[in-house]
Design a protein around this nucleic acid. Structure first.
Lengths: 188, 188
DNA sequence: ATGCTAACAGACCGAACGTTCGAGTGACAC
DNA sequence: GTGTCACTCGAACGTTCGGTCTGTTAGCAT
């Protein structure tokens, strides 16, 4: 049973690469099967719901991973607000492989699968935004100002991911991360 | 002849909506034809190259529009750097319909059509980034600092476009615009 | 009227899509 | 051995894709 779970997880790790690179519509069953080394039919044994189920499972897994690797740091009250923001930025940076890969949640949100998963994504990001706002409030910022800071941080991180592609510069995202951490240093 | 151009332009305006909403892979010929009110075959009368030609023409058109409506303001040396940045932000905001629609250039850059048009997009954005950097230098910032400011502005604008979708909040983009213009006011 | 041409539509095409099927294979139970 | 169970694959399914073919319409010159 434990082995079965590992197999499924291994498959998911291979599948997510294709979805991140090609998007939901762009990822074909042939490509997904090739990425796993299985035949198309075998993929259906593990994911009877087909492409939609793979995307749904991967979305939930990615949300959990993003929570665990990045946003969870915001709630660790034992550390200072600045330390928490710093850990969050590092965690997010790790999650997207230093800008080398995309955020699957954003990929799904931009494709037609958003019709089904939009609410989940919206609610999750509203939560995450709240966590960010709270940390900035703990830094002494008024509610309004904290909201602006949180939005700006989120916008810059996701924007850098996209702008890197527009500029064709793989290092662009990490430059943004350094810029953000630098600004953070000035605060604490 | 003039009328022919207008017809083609009218078609393009209807086609771009579909591409912006569904992405390159997500936009099907049936949807594109429906958006124009024509049959598929009639679309091929106007665009013999099919979907690829439509996207290519629209990409060039969007680049020109973005240049004209937003980035051109950066080079109007008769106005102050701050005024130019302000006009740029307003122009960009208009281009994306106050956040109601996407940037077609970014949409193309994220789909499989990027294989063909990647260089064009990369070069164009490198140019635009240079223009932004120059303005920040004219504001008295050192080269390095100016680069950071330019990158940050670009990242925030495109990030807000994406984050708005993640949050499901149509107003998110304009909040970013107001934030940026507010910060600009503090400079000049 | 007749002929010409740009513009259009609907049926149609092969290819690729996501999906299903049936027939295995090997491992473990009885 | 016999059964069964998780798992795999090649082949095919029906559908939809981007794209084409055949012909009709509308406007205009002659």
């Amino acid at each position: 049973m434990a082995k079965t779970l590992n197999v499924r997880d291994a498959l998911l790790e291979q599948l997510v690469v294709v979805f991140r690179e090609r998007g939901y519509e762009g990822a074909t069953l042939v490509q997904l099967a090739a990425a796993t080394g299985l035949g198309k039919a075998s993929l259906y044994h593990h994911f009877p719901g087909g492409k939609a189920e793979m995307a749904a499972v991967l979305l939930r897994k990615s949300v959990a991973e993003l929570q665990q690797r990045a946003f969870a740091h915001l709630n660790k009250t034992k550390r200072s607000p600045v330390e928490r923001l710093d850990a969050f930025i590092d965690g997010f940076s790790d999650y997207v492989a230093q800008g080398a890969s995309h955020c699957l949640v954003a990929v799904i949100a931009q494709g037609s699968a958003a019709d089904v998963h939009g609410d989940l994504i919206n609610n999750q990001f509203a939560d995450w935004r709240s966590s960010l706002i709270r940390v900035y409030e703990e830094l002494g910022e008024k509610r309004k100002r904290a909201r602006r800071s949180a939005d700006q941080l989120l916008d810059e991180l996701y924007g850098a991911l996209l702008t890197a592609k527009l500029l064709g510069d793989p290092n662009h995202f990490m430059r943004c991360v350094k810029r953000l951490k630098r600004a953070l240093g000035a605060l604490g």
